[in-house]
Design a binder for these strands. Sequence first.
DNA 1: TATTTTTCCGTCGATATCGGACCGTGATGC
DNA 2: GCATCACGGTCCGATATCGACGGAAAAATA
Lengths: 416, 416
Amino acid sequence: MQPTSPLPPLRLSVPGPSGRADAAVTLSTVARLVASGAAVSKADLVAAAGLARTTVSTAVDELLARGVLRPDGARPTTGRGRPADRLAMSARGGHVLLADVGARGAHLAVVDLSQRVLAHEHIDIDVQDGPDAVLAAVEDALTALRGRARHPGDGDPAVRAVVIGLPGPVDGNLGIPVRPPIMPGWHAYPVSARLQRTFDCPAVLENDVNLRALGEARALPADQVPLLFVKVGTGIGGGLVSREGVLHHGADGAAGDIGHVRVRGGPDTACVCGNVGCIEAVASAGAIARRLAAEPHQLGVATIADVRALIARGDPDALGVVREAAGVIGELVATLVHFYNPARVTLGGSLTAASDELLAGVRSVVYQRALPLATRNLVLTNSVLGEYAGLAGAAVLGIERVLSPPGMDALTAPRP
Amino acid sequence: MQPTSPLPPLRLSVPGPSGRADAAVTLSTVARLVASGAAVSKADLVAAAGLARTTVSTAVDELLARGVLRPDGARPTTGRGRPADRLAMSARGGHVLLADVGARGAHLAVVDLSQRVLAHEHIDIDVQDGPDAVLAAVEDALTALRGRARHPGDGDPAVRAVVIGLPGPVDGNLGIPVRPPIMPGWHAYPVSARLQRTFDCPAVLENDVNLRALGEARALPADQVPLLFVKVGTGIGGGLVSREGVLHHGADGAAGDIGHVRVRGGPDTACVCGNVGCIEAVASAGAIARRLAAEPHQLGVATIADVRALIARGDPDALGVVREAAGVIGELVATLVHFYNPARVTLGGSLTAASDELLAGVRSVVYQRALPLATRNLVLTNSVLGEYAGLAGAAVLGIERVLSPPGMDALTAPRP
DNA sequence: TATTTTTCCGTCGATATCGGACCGTGATGC
DNA sequence: GCATCACGGTCCGATATCGACGGAAAAATA
């Protein structure tokens, strides 16, 4: 019965480097709780961080001395007891620069560590122009935006971090795009290194859909994770936020790249990737536009904006094609819901902003196909942040980067 | 340009409860490193845990005093310098009971905290008999097995944990099955509570495929995660191990439940779940058996063992049907590889043990369909642990449970 | 054989964080 | 005026961790 041992040596998981609870971690914890708005007083911090009052007190003192936090004088009475001394992120904490670059344009913003949007704008770019031209335009615009972002009396806050999202696969560790299909000339271009040199601060590179997924997840209650974000635009992409609220990148940073999944319906449709039947070739906004322009519709649409106009007008042909696409996307979403069992699926991209047709179509398929266990508590909606979801995710990454123990050290007020 | 703020308040992630690096965490870290075989001396522990020698030393002393560790006298010379005083898990650390219950049988085992398999056996059960009968049989067999597992001179080690895997969706927190399709009468039955009472120790309930996935992941090098395990047997199921090496359960513990995903091919095939075109109804071992028994083959197969025999004999009809199923499964795997981007996909279940037909078929489709970025480093193989993968996963869960800070407290030698 | 080198391990004091106890402060209600 | 409630500052003891020093055991070298 017990001839030889059937089990090989198994690795057991070991909790972190364990090390001592470094003071830097405590500082970071306190700073992030204030920055996220989860705590505005020391009493809040004690409750939220689970630390002793004295520990919180010393941490806050340190952060006040460094100029990261500032007292926020107002003491609104809550009715009973002594009102709390309020805390806020100091304006001297510095700026975080954000760029959410799409295929044809980029959303830019300057935020401070308390998530205030100091300035933002949209610029027209074309990623086809290559990294040099696009990044130069982004850098110039960000620099100009920063000039406009200065509040009177705040001095000249330093740039603490830059975050950029690009519409293609990236290697976040190396800070480079990895063979992005729609971005010729960007492969292995040192995006992070360039931005880091330009602004003399840490730079973070992330995929654009991942940024949207993260933004959505962090704008929602904490029970809305795991979250699956599906963007339907010129292409189709996905982003995954795990139960812990962090992005899932997969082994090669390629997770969520669902545009070239094979789907039922239109098995003969050729795709730019060389295969046939990819969902992107069948159900993306681009595919819908092409289909409406061809037989038997011939509606004379060329751009996605035309498609949106048709849908808004309630054109039956267009709605029919969208419904069909929604069915295809819905089946994929149903599969992924089975597999990943998210708490929430969020639809984004140009097509979802136009109307609710896509959402309705996806919903009907998912709730019909997926098993009750996985859909009982599932929330399936359109993006709540819309076109700003990417900036929101970038803000999260940037602020967390600045307020993390490694970046935290550099965080000292220029002049007390 | 900056009309109103486009961003709502965003939650920032906060590192754990932060609290001080509790001594219990250090103890747990050291114990797990020894238990996993990653360290056999204090010097190893210093390197592996990243702690100071003195910290490791006091932790080891404490664990020796508690009877968790024991000195392992032999000091094999490594060629230079003073040989290390070797450490091992004490036999007095206690036993962990494992049960991997399938539809028609159960693998049982008794292991100690150093992963030694003290005894194991396979018993015949039928989950259709209901929880009372099955769990009574499992409990009896485990008790008997434990009797045989006593090493001479080890005294009577206590049972520290019980782990059970069941072939259906479970709620690990509540310790109950959740509407399992093939286990009538098991819904909401308090499995964990019953085992906890029977053996007077913590009980862990997990899905059987998840156990296999975890076992595989922990038996492989640490760079083989994220890992996707796909079991093809009577049904089809999946298990996910994240990059951190832990199981992904999803929002409702339903993650990996991919048996009822819709696939291309055989869209009219009805499934027990009420839908049509489910992969389980098209490509599972059960579906293959049914297909071979019907037109146009009529091979007179009834069980999965018959199918395996046909495949082993190289029957062309059977191989054709298996190839077809492999294609269907391969397309699903390709989709999931795009989506989750695992470092490794492992195939398991009765069909993969019979021959390499399934693996070959899946591989050809995945490498044809999936994009290079996601498959460049992908390893796609059969299970390395075979039928014992579930027990391996159970051992990991059980030992980690015992060696975690909460369970650690109970870990004290009965007599010094 | 004596010495050096190498590696492992124990002891001690220094540091710094953590958490409890105590007290002061600012508001409300009786 | 007094009690109550809640926030916050300060002191001090507990203790986890670390660094430095020195001792121990084996092999290499002179």
